[in-house]
């Protein structure tokens, strides 16, 4: 049996979501997410790619059933999780180190996690900065994230911070290396589209040991951990990033369990060991796109992409098209391209 949220209720909820998202558009997806099984309170509707700041698929901590378990083992940055439940989406395996070794800077021990308590004790809620004010929702950034450069963390990357060398690794000294294609924020798609307040066009950026770093006169002054680099299985999650939970729906859909067992950053969902804070698996890539009933389906969804197990039920026809994104199928009017129905796919 299908469950519907209809008519005026849908409109009212959509309206409340809109009113909760005065920023709208880019970076505005976070605030009004109602969580649970319905998408009626999704804020914004457009992509919000801020580094954890803009988009949140929910704000409720806890909740959601069917949680997975991590083996309770402390210390170190090694993969030590087990039993992730029946979904098996992301068996916590380390990256194949025969092919890639872990980035040096990511070889941290538990001591690094204490940094936050001293230098980054005060968090500010990016969502709140935009007028939403709900400090229980979305991601929080460390106090070290300077205004105007959202997306970068001020200071020295964790591995280098312990070396007390002024955060100037020899390999990054001016003239010590030839800049290459990936020494640019734009190559990593870090630009104003996704990290809306960062001044990515200015600064001396380079790739270093799993991070995108920005150097000043005396060495690295800001850094950003990268998927597959510092953010790879086996490495510790950078303590500077805090998180609240996804909505129970997404917790269920992606099978990540309770909030302490995952991190969601830059449209990527990671599983972490709650005790050690070590990344145990990369669970999912998300578009970050959330759409509402009545909204026009944006460009980029021209091709039918419904999961195979739902194709018999939701197939394009003269009266409706169906498009998938982030655990949801959208029924779209083929003529107007307006979204008629939002269908969640808990399996």
């Amino acid at each position: 049996m299908l469950r519907f949220l209809t008519g005026a209720a849908a409109i009212a909820l959509a309206a409340s979501a809109l009113s909760a998202d005065p920023g709208g558009g880019k970076g505005g997806g976070g605030g009004g997410n109602g969580g649970g099984k319905s998408h009626e309170a999704q804020g914004g509707g457009e992509k919000a790619h801020g580094n954890g700041g803009g988009k949140s698929h929910g704000e409720q901590s806890g909740g959601g059933g069917g949680f997975d378990k991590h083996a309770k083992q402390g210390g170190g940055g090694k993969d030590r999780s087990s039993d992730y439940g029946a979904r098996g989406n992301d068996k916590p395996v380390k990256a194949d180190r025969d092919f890639y070794k872990p980035a040096k800077a990511a070889k941290q021990d538990g001591k690094d996690r204490g940094v936050r308590g001293k230098d980054y004790a005060v968090s500010r809620d990016i969502v709140g900065d935009r007028g939403r004010g709900d400090r229980t929702s979305g991601w929080r950034w460390g106090d070290s994230v300077p205004q105007g450069t959202r997306g970068l963390i001020r200071g020295c990357p964790p591995g280098l911070a312990k070396k007390n060398n002024g955060c100037l690794p020899p390999g990054l000294a001016r003239g010590a290396r030839v800049a290459t294609f990936y020494d640019s924020p734009s190559w990593w798609n870090f630009d104003d589209r996704w990290h809306d307040s960062a001044d990515w066009s200015n600064g001396d950026y380079s790739y270093y040991d799993g991070y995108l770093v920005r150097s000043g006169a005396s060495g690295i002054d800001s850094w950003l951990p990268l998927l597959g680099g510092a953010l790879a299985p086996g490495n510790l999650w950078p303590s500077q990033y805090e998180t609240n939970s996804l909505s129970p729906y997404y917790q269920d859909y992606y099978g990540v369990g309770q909030p302490e067992g995952y991190r969601y950053y830059d449209d990527t969902l990671y599983r972490v060991d709650p005790q050690s804070n070590a990344i145990t698996a990369i669970t999912a890539l998300l578009t970050g796109d959330r759409f509402q009933v009545g909204q026009r389906m944006p460009q980029g969804y021209d091709v039918y992409n419904v999961p195979t197990s739902y194709r018999d039920q939701y197939r394009d026809g003269p009266n409706a098209d169906y498009r998938y994104s982030d655990g949801t199928i959208y029924q779209v009017d083929p003529t107007t391209q307006l979204i008629q129905t939002v269908i969640e796919l808990l399996t």
Binding site: L5, T6, A8, I339, T341, I343
Partner: peptide, 16 residues
């Protein structure tokens, strides 16, 4: 894989 019934939100805006 256990499939649970999908939750659907239908908009009056769609006038259907």
């Amino acid at each position: 894989m256990i499939r649970r019934p999908p939750a659907i939100i239908v908009g009056a805006l769609a006038l259907l």
